[in-house]
Design a protein around this nucleic acid. Structure first.
Lengths: 165, 165
DNA sequence: CTCACTGCAAATCCTTTGCAGCTGC
DNA sequence: GCAGCTGCAAAGGATTTGCAGTGAG
């Protein structure tokens, strides 16, 4: 899925690999993926990559760490963060900033947007076709668009607003 | 400036007051504003409100604190945070989350979007008319849209990408 | 006078870093 | 074997909190 009516994105902002997610990527494929991006395919990294790339899902560092700390799975928090940051820099992973205290990582690199349930902290996708931008502002000269993040914050209709103090 | 082709926003998500910013709001007006929202108009709060509401600008807690700590201006960091959070809850201020480590506060409550310069950390406005959403996804039933945050991340064309490790 | 607000400092939370030991190739 | 990676624990930075003192009405 390529940007259609998007303004031109900086080419380096586009995925450097074919969309990795979705399928159950095999061990071999994961190793190849890491190697291709100059990352030594170590055990912890493979475990992390397996979770991230086997299926499009939104992960937080904490959630990932919790999942890893099951039998046969392990990596330290530091390694989880290191690997996540590395994957983001390598553009194999997208950082979704919805809340200063809740950063999500998304292996879905195709153009899409996000729906954030403020009540539950749940994050879900809005397909690229579901939200159409017709007119886009002209960019300042010498500037390139790196990404367009759209977050639609929703909450349950019934839930009364909590306004403290 | 009212939403035009936006999907209907939850009414409580709309400004409860006439757009306060822009003009140089007087001391009296600021006191009235705070009182109207059940906030005791104390000295520190007035100083903070003065900076926030006299002109549409993007403030971080830190920047605000720095500005306050000049002669005749003072408030502790705790009070700055307390006041900012309070104003956000009262919907007199909008939180703009662009970076987990860089939260901005915006007194411009009218519908608009943001342009974030990744290189300098500078945040600027994209007018509501400059970016037109033509098609909007249908919301899950029982859900109301609280806000639509659009952040266009840009960086200087010339600047080489920094990919560590 | 009273309740709410303030400021300080300590506490939290998430994330990063320093560094010694381990591991992929 | 050696560079690169890991884990631990300590450091860091931003925000929050506890609490005694202060000030608005």
């Amino acid at each position: 899925m390529e940007p259609l009516n998007h303004p031109p994105l900086d080419s380096t902002a586009l995925p450097l690999v074919e969309s990795t997610g979705n399928g159950l990527t095999s061990r071999q494929e994961l190793m190849a993926l890491l190697r291709k991006h100059d990352m030594t395919p170590t055990h912890p990294r493979l475990l992390i990559a397996e979770l991230l790339f086997s299926k499009h899902e939104h992960w937080s560092a904490e959630k990932l760490f919790a999942k890893l700390n099951q039998p046969h799975h392990q990596a330290s928090m530091a390694t989880v963060y290191n690997t996540l940051n590395l994957l983001v820099h390598k553009k194999l992973l997208r950082e979704v900033i919805v809340d200063p205290v809740r950063v999500f990582y998304d292996s879905n690199l195709s153009a899409h947007y996000h729906l954030y349930n403020v009540d539950t902290g749940e994050l879900s996708d809005i397909g690229f076709e579901e939200l159409v931008i017709e007119q886009f502002p002209s960019m300042p000269k010498d500037m390139v668009t790196q990404s367009i993040d759209i977050i639609v914050r929703v909450r349950p209709k019934h839930k009364a607003e909590t306004i403290p103090a």
